[in-house]
């Protein structure tokens, strides 16, 4: 599935923007409701995009369930999620849309070359441009 539009920020051109974040290794757009990989960039390096998207969706669902039990008020709306591993950082941004969703932007960042604060700021700006 590909988009042929090249105006402001289309669903697929937004990944080009995400990949321009310093230290970005690969990125993916996921529809959280269906667990579908909307688009992905970078080398999949033996990772199946469909399976990765489904796994990310499950991870997010578990995070939301867990957080809703752990914080006061019992309802959560995750803005972004940062997971650091021994090999790098995983930054996940959830954007509410006016119908279903949320739309998930996932980016894997290089440990040495990335700046988390900058990456987080850029990712938020991109998601706002994409879905105002």
């Amino acid at each position: 599935m590909t988009a042929r539009e090249a105006t402001v920020l289309a669903l697929d051109s937004c990944l080009t923007e995400v990949m321009a974040i310093p230290g970005a290794l690969d990125a993916m757009l996921v529809d959280h409701t269906s667990g579908m990989a909307v688009s992905f960039s970078g080398q999949p390096r033996g990772v199946d995009a469909d399976k990765a998207a489904a796994a990310l969706t499950e991870m997010l669902r578990a995070s939301m369930d867990g957080l809703s039990r752990a914080c006061p008020g019992d309802t959560v709306r995750i803005g972004d999620l940062l997971i650091s591993t021994d090999q790098g950082h995983h930054l996940i941004r959830l954007t509410d849309t006016l119908f279903e969703g949320p739309l998930v932007i996932y980016v894997r960042l290089d440990m040495e070359r990335s700046n988390i604060a900058l990456a987080r700021h850029r990712l938020r700006a991109i998601s706002e441009q994409l879905l105002a």
């Binding site: 920020l9 289309a10 669903l11 937004c14 909307v38 006016l98 119908f99 994409l130 879905l131 105002a132």
Partner: peptide, 8 residues
């Protein structure tokens, strides 16, 4: 936005 329309 275009992104929203495409996503929808």
């Amino acid at each position: 936005t275009l992104g929203e329309l495409q996503y929808c």
